[in-house]
Structure formats: C-alpha cells, structure tokens
Write a protein that binds this DNA or RNA. Structure first.
Lengths: 251, 251
DNA sequence: CGCGCTTTTGAATATGTTCAACCTCAGTGG
DNA sequence: CCACTGAGGTTGAACATATTCAAAAGCGCG
C-alpha cells in the first residue's frame, strides 16, 4: 500500500522531505537549509521496481536521491549469485563523493517502485559550501553509512540465520522510522524473500524458515510486502540490535 | 622477520614513507606534498601486538597512522565472538573524518608489533587545506576503504570458505605490494589462523583445513607469520579477485 | 626444560543448502 | 466469469558444508 502521490504524506503525518528529516537527526537545520535541501527532491521521477539507477562500470555525473521507496547497492558474481551490500531508503543519497567522478564498482537498483531525483554534482557541492548544517549532516550521514556497512560485515560474518534476519528487520525499522515511514507497529517493505536472502547470505528457502520461526515466536510477521512488528524489544534482543551505529554520537 | 628499525626499508627497497606510496597510487604528489605527508609519521611510536589503539566508546582527539605492522578494526559480541571488519596496513590512516569528534563504535587494535603515529585532527585538516594532492589522495583512499568494506560483505555473504580465505590473501597481497611490503613471492603477515577465522566468518579449525587445501593445490603456503605465494594467478582465480575496488578509477 | 599459545587432526554434530514439488495469489485474457 | 499464467512463498528429504569438541603435536620463549 505504498502511496506514490505527488506529495506523499508519510505515516508519521509529516510533510517534511525525508532528506530533511534524515539530516535533522544529525543536528538542527535552519529553515533556509531545510528549504534548500527539500529543493533537491523537486524534480523527482517515478521509477519502476527492479530498475537499475546506476550500473556497474558507469561514471555517473549525478548523485541519486531516493525520495520514496527502497533501492539497493548490489553486485553479481560470475556464478550468478547476488549480494546486496546496502539499502537506500527515503532520504538516502547515493553520493559519489560529490567531488571527483569515479567508476561504479557495483550497481544501484530499485527494489519496488521509487521516486528518485538525480542531483548534479555541482548542485550538491554548492549546497555543502553554502550551508554548514547541511555539510555536517552529509558528513555524519556518510559516517553512518560506513558504520552500517561494517555492521553488515558483523551480521553476515558472525551471526546465526535468525539473528541476521532479525538484525536486518530492526535496522530497516529504525531507519524508516527516522524518516517517517515506519511506526512502532511496523512498516511497508517491497523486498522478496530472495532479496532478504541475498542480503543476509542465506538461501531463500532458509529465509522462509527463519521468517516462520519469527512468526511462531510472536516477534514479527513478514509477508505481503509488509512487516508487522509484534514484539520489538524481543526482536532487538535476538538481533543484539544497538541503534547507535546509525547515529554517530558527537557529544 | 618484520624489521622494526627506526628507518625501515621495505622489501621493495624504497625509503618512501608508506603513506606517501599509498597516496601516490591515487595521483602524483608534489615534492612538497610528499615531504608534508612523510612528516606525519615523524613521531611514530612502537606498539606491541594485541594492543588497543582506540577503544570502543572512546571519542579520540587524534587519528592513527600505521607506519609499519598490521592493525585491525574489530568488535566483540556479547557471546565473545569477534569480528574483524578491516585491516590497517602501513600507510593506512584511521581517520575519524578529521572534522568532528565522534564516538568509536568499534575498537582498533594492533595484530603484531606496529609503528604508529598519532595525528592531531588539526594537523590533518591543515594538510588537506594546504595541499590539493593530499586532499585528493585522502578522499580516494577513503573511497577505497568503503569499497573494501563492501567487498568484505560480498566475501562473507556469498563466497565459500576457500574463496573467502583466498580473497583475503589476495587483498592483503595487493595492498601490501602498493606500499612496498610484499613482493610477487609473498609477504610477512603476523595474523594467527584465529584472526583469519574472525575475519572470514569461519572457525579456526576450518581455516586450518582451507589453508592445507590451498597448500596441496600449490597455490599458497601460509604459516610461520609468512605468506608464500606459489601461484598468484591461480589464487586470484579461485577468489575471483579484481583489484579495481582498491583503486577507484578517476579517468 | 616446561609453559602457553598456536596449529593440526579426527569424529560427531549442527546448520544451512539444494532440489523438487506444490501452493497461493494477483494479474491477464478468453 | 473463469481458466491460465507466472512470480513468489512453503514444505520435505537428502545432502553439503562448516562447527564443535577433544586431544595431541609443534613451537617460541623465559
């Protein structure tokens, strides 16, 4: 039931642009900064699911801002196996460092239908140069992204199947909550079980079994493009989920 | 047999500071820039193995520059399991973004004996502000670090045991080669099999079996703190190793 | 030498994969 | 309206891969 109207009110009821909500979590922004940021999403286009926004090998001239929907970074092995290495949620910017062009080492594609804005490198650089709050926000957002990738290494490297899946569900919940797309009760999620498998390093069959187990444990119900959280504390406990890696503390 | 003399000539015979060699790989540096960079390592101190340079929860005031030896980023789970999420080799800078202080989400510790310099945040910021080549080098180095972490997610998420270990050995070889600490024949490496296990998400026992297999396949011999490469092409083939993620191409 | 850490090996076990079948449901077209 | 279709989800059984446990051997160092 993802709404894709021109102006999409998120479940939290806020009309603020997700990128504004996201960066605000890293420190207050002035009204001017909020307006400038929101302007980035002005030309957002609707993009179908399973569509590549940036392809491996390309040298993109624009960054990609996800305004609505879910996209991911991924790569295929010669064998055909796919690994998803990050999710891009509303408010997330797929940067490219906004200084120098450089060759993409992986692809970025949508999962479900998205609304996405292309942001020219110069526009980003200008924003950062003029607004200290935005510069700071982007810096911390990038730091959070790095920490998240490390957390994923941890997840896939040393957690059991049920822990991995739980951790992923907790992370998505927390990140969507910040931008107003999740409530305590749950969130919409267009991922298939195969997507979850390609993220957690499990087989789709085993993901299915893990999800059933989580349902029987009355922790969370995943299905029909929807995640219903029955017992958040319990889910976080299994996952050993600590949200602090998502918000780099700065005193 | 790691040399730890005050001025350590690397096996490649170069006397250049590893950080100079590393950043030069991302674009030529002026003599002035090289000198300024090399100055960072001036006050390097010797640090024993298995020693924490930065601890989880701390808010460091200085970055850490590894001049010699091997260190790593790691974290422990409550269960005691450890995951290594990155290696810091000679020339690597454990930054902290050199702008804002922020809380460490993981620890950084030495593996074997190291020579390490603490670099105050301001010194780094000054260097970057004054020297375009250094700024560019750091930017690309950071990009390479991010790509490397994603590559690790790939490694642990969807490769078999022998592929994971091979890939790690290839990556370390390539990175050490750039800074002059590896030859085609191999390199010194102070890691235990347990360290390899904590990196690849395997048990120490299984790492041992994989290493034996690689030895029997006449690809590489690991032991006695030394990695002897018998068939680099073969090892890279097993690992599907593509070094390009280590050097972000910029036309 | 003796101690502690690392490496090595075997056997039993756990965990997750593969393969193949079947089910469900939404969308499509007769 | 219903049959058809295809993608995604579910299930069982056989299997592969890696873990755990336990014991012994090697090695560096005081």
């Amino acid at each position: 039931m993802t709404t894709l109207a021109p102006v999409a009110p998120s479940p939290g009821g806020h009309l603020l642009h997700p990128v504004v909500r996201k960066l605000s979590a890293y420190g207050a922004l002035t009204g001017q900064e909020q307006a400038a940021l929101a302007g980035l999403g002005a030309g957002a286009q609707r993009v179908e699911g399973r569509f590549d926004l940036l392809s491996e090998g390309a040298v993109p001239e624009s960054a990609v801002l996800v305004v609505e929907g879910v996209a991911c970074r991924y790569r295929h092995r010669p064998s055909g196996a796919r690994q998803i290495t990050a999710y891009l949620l509303p408010g997330d910017l797929c940067d490219l460092d906004f200084v120098h062009p450089c060759r993409m080492n992986h692809s970025v594609g949508t999962i479900g239908t998205c609304r996405v804005a292309r942001v020219p490198r110069e526009a980003l650089a200008g924003l950062v140069a003029r607004h200290a709050g935005i510069a700071r926000g982007f810096r911390l957002a990038k730091l959070a992204e790095e920490e998240t990738t490390r957390e994923w290494v941890m997840n896939v490297g040393c957690r059991s199947a049920i822990e991995r899946v739980s951790h992923l569900l907790c992370e998505l919940h927390e990140r969507l909550r910040v931008v107003g797309w999740a409530t305590k009760a749950g969130y919409d999620l267009p991922l298939t079980q195969q997507d979850l498998a390609d993220t957690t390093g499990l087989s789709n069959v085993h993901v299915n079994r893990v999800l059933r187990q989580l349902r029987l444990m009355r922790l969370v119900e995943v299905g029909g493009k929807r995640v219903d959280i029955l017992n958040l504390a319990g889910l976080q406990a299994i996952a050993e989920f600590q949200a602090d890696y998502l918000r780099p503390a700065v005193d």
